[in-house]
Design a protein around this nucleic acid. Structure first.
Lengths: 348, 348
DNA sequence: TTGTATGCGTTATCAC
DNA sequence: GTGATAACGCATACAA
């Protein structure tokens, strides 16, 4: 018993191979009744098309390469979920290329690798401009490319509006402080102070991203617009140890009551830990706002910004698929909006 | 100008396509002179074989799936280097599957994915037995499989002898203490105390590994054999924050002079940091031994165990390739030995 | 709307 | 040793 082929299906359904191919690829022009019988035969034989034969006949690889940073975060799991669902629906395989180190990028894009043979490329989170800048020896992939969780001129992209996210956090923080100011009358500091912890942006790095800068800009802008001011800003690298150290420093220096915005849940988590160690009442004298809505955020009651990551991945895939089916025209950018989730870390 | 095919090469070299295919695949029976002319034609035309056509004609996918944990460590970069080199030499593509979460394992092994279509599977670091245990709904991959950086009965594997590594550390630490004891006569503690920091083994986890347990067992065994004893043992999760906390605790409680074995460089690095913060003389009153020889270990002068990771990857690939070319027989296990690198953190 | 025939770029199997 | 040629499984242009 060999693996059933399209021939077997055709014979079984009493049709030609062309017809089977047509129902496989949704080529509308096929009568419902015959489509049903073909589908029936496929099911009975448990037939699955041979992807390699398909590739050689179609002259395409039906494969998409996804370049991904190696960061063990729920974010990328969700992003892949969105991407893979869309590509699967369109009968494309996705090959994942974890960018373990810099040399690997060049290798992946080299002409003899899987990535190069792909019909399209998805790049996550990177700064494309910097990545392909002259002098690095890296040359851009020649096929259609889409950026996800990043944006650049002249390239299709699906990105999260981190500027908006920061703004939402800033507006909410300002509002919290106003409310608190109304409650306890006569307080000079009118509702407590405002602090922020930022993620250090690594300069001169291939793996650089504007994500955190945008969150910062949005926040500062919103706070300023609402007439508030930030009493102290802290910077931490994206690392739990550094975050904890910075959290301790912040709580050493901060004047309570205070509201703190951390531009990543990783940093907010460290603040939560440090506050707990000091016996501070989170949600009361100390309010904390994070960003990411990581899986633990709900359990720990962290007010944070939730992002439609799967939707962003799905849409990025759609943009690429459109190009693959011949779409011309200028680059399109799809924007996605974070949403504030209020929990008890801000008294909600 | 279309992409040159094997036909073009044959024509150019004045031979048949069969001959071209033969030189491509090293099918010995071809005269040197004709091989040269074929190679010449290939170079002139800049010909690269179409992998899809190859796959369909050969009836194989010429692809190997590598299941990898998502841990940003030099270890996996080096492991991939070894694997990829071997597979490339044998004209196999490698597809990397980062195991972001548990659900992804099932999906990767599902019958409609790339991984399933691979001719062989490489699994890194995991506990195969636990992974495929009944009840998880995960069924083993049916093709030839090789384990790397792990070992199990009845499966080909290439693994690091972490037991030996631990033993080497234990012997060296014991030796250090004896030497020190001889130097300062009459000291009751005869050369100082011995401490150890272990990596916490996560139980009930898919992503479990025996690596750290082996390092621990080997160390304790060697120390006992040389008549020494461990004055204190500490446990930390594989996380820089936790490691620093544990390092601080250890240095709070330890009696100097002391020698500390950390079963991973990540933990040793935290000790280095904490010692520096306290103004302790590393290599003198405090000696530190790590495990892994991470890139920074040399610069910071950390005595540690170096592992032939690339060689292990390369050999794992060879084991799999042997099966792919029809090798029968019982499972083979290839053992690799860590090597102690003495640097100034132990006074070397 | 559907069946047939041709082509995709290799590898493998023959003869020579 | 080497050159024809038949698969491999599918998509597609063309004919019906």
């Amino acid at each position: 018993m060999h693996k059933p082929t399209i021939q077997d299906v055709a014979r079984r359904a009493g049709v030609g191979v062309g017809t089977v191919s047509r129902v496989l690829n949704n080529h509308a022009a096929v009568r419902d009744s015959t489509r049903d019988s073909v589908l029936g035969a496929i099911a009975e034989l448990n037939y699955t098309p041979n992807p390699h034969a398909r590739r050689i006949a179609g002259g395409k690889s039906y494969t998409i390469s996804v370049l991904l940073p190696v960061v063990t975060t729920e974010f990328y799991v969700r992003l892949l979920d969105g991407l893979e669902q869309a590509f699967q629906e369109a009968r494309y395989d996705v090959a994942i290329f974890p960018l373990l180190d810099r040399s690997r990028l060049e290798r992946y894009l080299g002409s003899h690798t899987l990535a190069y043979q792909a019909d399209g490329l998805v790049m996550a989170t990177y700064n494309l401009t910097q990545m392909f800048q002259s002098g690095t020896g890296i040359r851009p992939y020649s096929g259609p490319t889409v950026l996800v969780d990043a944006h650049a001129e002249g390239v299709d992209c699906a990105y999260m509006d981190n500027l908006l996210g920061g703004r939402l956090a800033g507006e909410y923080a300002s509002q919290l402080i106003r409310q608190q100011g109304e409650g306890q009358q006569g307080e000079g500091q009118q509702g407590g102070r405002l602090y922020a912890v930022w993620v250090e942006t690594e300069l001169d790095q291939l793996f650089t991203t504007r994500v955190f800068d945008d969150r910062r800009s949005g926040f500062l802008e919103a706070v300023q617009l609402s007439g508030g001011r930030v009493s102290g800003e802290y910077v931490s690298s994206f690392d739990s140890l550094a975050a904890r150290t910075v959290a301790a420093q912040l709580l050493d220096e901060a004047v309570l009551p205070a509201t703190v915005f951390a531009s990543a849940d990783l940093l907010a988590g460290a603040l939560l830990d440090e506050a707990q160690a000091r016996g501070l009442t989170v949600g009361g004298e100390l309010k904390i706002i994070g960003f990411d809505d990581q899986p633990w955020a709900q359990g720990r009651g962290l007010t944070t910004l939730h992002q439609p990551v799967e939707a962003m991945g799905y849409e990025a895939a759609q943009l690429l698929l459109a190009r693959l089916s011949g779409e011309e025209g200028p680059a399109r950018a799809r924007r996605f909006e974070p949403r504030l989730i209020v929990r008890k870390s801000t008294g909600g």
